[in-house]
Write a protein that binds this DNA or RNA. Sequence first.
DNA 1: CGGGCGTTGGATCGCCGCTCCAAACACGCT
DNA 2: AGCGTGTTTGGAGCGGCGATCCAACGCCCG
Lengths: 239, 239
Amino acid sequence: MAKRTSEGTGRAPRRTDGLSRELIVRTAVEILDGGGERALTLRELTVRLSTGYGAVYHYVADKGDLLAAATEDVVAGVVSGAVAEAGTDPRTALRRLAVGLFDATDAHPWVGAELSRQPWRPALLDFFESIGRLLDALDVPDGARVDAAGTLVNYVLGVAAQNAAHARLRADRGTDRETFLTEASDRWAQVDPGRYPFVHAAARQLGEHDDRRQFLVGVDVFLAGISAQSRNATADPSA
Amino acid sequence: MAKRTSEGTGRAPRRTDGLSRELIVRTAVEILDGGGERALTLRELTVRLSTGYGAVYHYVADKGDLLAAATEDVVAGVVSGAVAEAGTDPRTALRRLAVGLFDATDAHPWVGAELSRQPWRPALLDFFESIGRLLDALDVPDGARVDAAGTLVNYVLGVAAQNAAHARLRADRGTDRETFLTEASDRWAQVDPGRYPFVHAAARQLGEHDDRRQFLVGVDVFLAGISAQSRNATADPSA
DNA sequence: CGGGCGTTGGATCGCCGCTCCAAACACGCT
DNA sequence: AGCGTGTTTGGAGCGGCGATCCAACGCCCG
């Protein structure tokens, strides 16, 4: 309560250190990482920055813009870091690329949600481009390359979106990953083994389910499919 | 303004035909199909049913419960209808199963979002079970079957979630599918061809992009991958 | 016919994103 | 130095959301 300009109804002291879009985005990322997508409210943002709505909206168009910027911020680092180093086996490089994005969306689930909301952000250009080149190195024929890349991206972003949804669900209910999986496994184990033999059998394996491993299995299936198809295409074009 | 019980501040006449959870869910589906996820508000629901909040919450726990029920309502019909008829080729049956769910989430994008939010609803049990059996028919070995089924489900639900996200985006901006794709294609065509040769080349194909076709390509890649892997497993277990 | 209980309608609450405006400041010009 | 102009900042307020809560209503059973 230092000196006020006039009466008691003076406004809060104006901040001296400059606000900036970058600072706002960084704070948004902190909030998102801390409490998930629901935690990012304009109110919370103004509190943390000890400022007002006007200041925030001076640098940011709306909440969507903020989320997009935050996503770009995270993904840019991840993808550029994982982009294939020369000399590695294309298959390994593809796996590394995919798992890099998986890990990123696993550490920051809100990224997964935002990516599926608006997939073709600048940060994903490098991702798609790298996949395209690696498929070229795998001798995937021209005609099939875009489709193959699209399939992989669909799969990776699809899993990311689901991870995001699960994380949101866990956050809303306050349960951690462990109990979440156990609950699911229990529910599955209770289905009628006569009517659903496969599901019932799968329930046991679900208990020790590992999202990351399952994801990598999927990547390998798609990679196997892609090379199988290009082999067939060169060997027997009529198929 | 018919007769009121007493003074002018009487309340609206009480409905005579019974409300029911079923009626509420059906109305919710109508709203969702008409205007997407954002259109489903409690207010809109009470207006259409010409009732109040209390009546709705008497039958429905909260909005999540309502969305879940609506999803179940739609998916139940679709999956049970598409569940494999005996005698068809397992590959064809799998394709039909997958595309059935795709078409459903394409016609009702909000279903895609809700499915990825809570994947293991009862309605999807049949889906998963059918996939498991068909993979068995395809001679996918025991140890890999659950993983393979998981991968396919991940893929299908992942694409569904992305379709939902795109539909929401289109709805928010009021653009239709056509212009949406054209805009994306244009943006891609503007990237630097030196730095992003693959993306630049892909931009041309993007103009005539067909989500459904791309989805089916992915399913075929998956199928090719599955049989390639099981062939390798039987022929060369060390790989 | 009267009291109890399953339904129904809607006022109300707290929170959200967002708009809008005035106060506070930085800085070039005279 | 004094002034004016444009940018940056803080916060009151608006409309809309999901959800709660309670009073009014009718039906049915004793």
